[in-house]
């Protein structure tokens, strides 16, 4: 790749993801098909199968699936600088929108009608979180081990002052230990409910 080609690919990465960023307004469902459309159909960077595997792997890294997918695609096409361009592209619109919303709120804060609307929104946010919990539970809790881990973690979070950070770090190892014990006793080793398809992953990742 010569310099001009590299510049073009960096620019394309930025503009493609800049367009995808705001599309997740009100729900991340729209994002995965959009990434597919840009990367497979419009730019021809990958084929359908490659992008599917890439998005699955993007879901296993920490952080939002959108940013991870952008980093993966950028890295594959143009190394670390490509990953950075793609990440800036997908983050910049959201960054501007969330700051804009915040400015708007600060300028109208304190007005009784605004405070009433905010109360309504907070009640809806609780519903959004419960929906996220429900969808996550449907996928995560499928045997005695997973239900027990969930309840134990919840008890630790509610009744102790242990930081949630350590609870998550413990979670990374508990799965390995649990799977090890199951293997030791020759139990059926199902570590996933079933392999969700790309669209379900997209819905799931947006909510967790």
């Amino acid at each position: 790749m010569n310099l001009q080609q590299r510049l073009i690919i960096h620019l394309q990465l930025f503009t493609s993801f800049f367009r995808i960023g705001p599309a997740t307004f009100g729900g991340g469902y729209a994002m995965i098909p959009l990434i597919e459309q840009q990367a497979v159909h419009k730019r021809g960077w990958f084929d359908e199968e490659e992008i599917g595997k890439l998005l699955t792997l993007a879901g296993t890294a920490p952080g939002g699936v959108g940013v991870n997918a952008a980093a993966f695609i950028g890295y594959r096409l143009a190394g670390i600088s490509g990953a950075i361009m793609a990440i800036i592209g997908i983050t910049l619109p959201t960054f501007i929108i969330v700051l804009g919303l915040s400015f708007l709120y600060i300028s109208i804060e304190g007005h009784p009608k605004v405070e009433a609307a905010m109360k309504g929104i907070k009640a809806a946010v609780i519903a959004l979180i419960l929906t996220a919990a429900y969808r996550m539970a449907k996928n995560a809790l499928f045997d005695t081990f997973t239900v027990m881990i969930m309840l134990a973690a919840l008890a630790v979070l509610i009744f102790t002052a242990i930081s949630p950070v350590y609870v998550v770090i413990a979670g990374l190892f508990i799965g390995l230990i649990g799977a090890g014990i199951k293997k030791l006793f020759g139990m059926d080793l199902a570590i996933e409910k079933r392999r969700p398809n790309k669209r379900e992953i997209a819905e799931l990742e947006y909510y967790i």
Partner: peptide
């Protein structure tokens, strides 16, 4: 992720 998913559920 077998152990992480239930923990993420608890956090939510």
């Amino acid at each position: 992720f077998y152990g992480l998913r239930p923990i993420i559920t608890a956090l939510i």
